[in-house]
């Protein structure tokens, strides 16, 4: 594992901690898209079907369990916790995420490395992760005002994707048989979605102002 991959995993972890912190500390999930969070649950469950069949490392196994567990905990809080669910901005979170699930699954049936149960679900999870942030980004755009922790959450998620791209570039030059076009192309698409957000994030950071997205 190289430093970029590790930095990517850590920023991913930090993003989840920031989100949990926001929900637990403020007992509020305002500005957070439940649809994006539900998509992440599906992403992790579909991708980590290999938890019991392929062992890579203790690190990988622990991280997989953490990602599955934390994403389930977040959705549980937003749906079941009495105080938290009252703060959910349902009317701003109207993205039709079922189409993303359906589209990703059809794409996985067409484009995959091997026509096996696990490989189809792996490709599905990669495609779905690429678009899973869209309901959240649309929600941020709609509300315009982004609170601090929500902004940090999306920032760390984007940083995670950027580090993964550096990781692939590094692996491409250091490993003799590195080719994984499904993950890399989807990763590029996914990172591109963050470009707009990053632009406004850095402007607000530079001006030391509150993050605001144009309507």
């Amino acid at each position: 594992m190289n430093i970029f991959r590790f930095a990517g995993d850590m920023t991913h972890l930090i993003s989840i901690v920031v989100l949990l912190l926001k929900i637990y500390a403020t007992k509020s999930c305002s500005g957070i898209s439940l649809k994006t969070q539900e998509l992440y649950v599906i992403v992790f469950l579909a991708r980590y079907l290999d938890l019991f069949t392929d062992f890579i490392s203790v690190y990988n196994t622990v991280m997989k369990l953490v990602f599955i567990g934390s994403s389930l905990a977040i959705v549980w809080c937003m749906r079941m916790h009495r105080a938290v669910k009252r703060t959910y901005d349902k009317e701003l979170d109207t993205f039709r995420h079922y189409f993303l699930v359906l589209g990703s699954f059809v794409l996985a049936l067409l484009l995959h490395e091997k026509f096996t149960f696990q490989e189809i679900f792996w490709a599905f999870s990669i495609y779905l992760e690429a678009v899973a942030i869209l309901p959240q980004l649309v929600m941020l755009q709609r509300s315009g005002n982004v609170d601090n922790l929500t902004g940090q959450y999306v920032f760390f998620l984007g940083a995670y994707r950027a580090f993964y791209i550096l990781n692939w570039i590094y692996r491409f030059f250091t490993e003799p048989h590195f080719s994984r076009w499904i993950a890399c192309l989807s990763g590029l698409v996914q990172t591109a979605f963050y470009a707009d957000f990053f632009y406004y994030y850095f402007i607000s950071w530079k001006n030391n102002a509150k993050l605001q997205l144009p309507a």
Binding site: D50, D54, F55, M63, F67
Partner: peptide, 10 residues
């Protein structure tokens, strides 16, 4: 590269 290692990322 073995199959298991093909998905060594998270």
């Amino acid at each position: 590269q073995s199959e298991a290692q093909a998905h060594d990322e998270l």
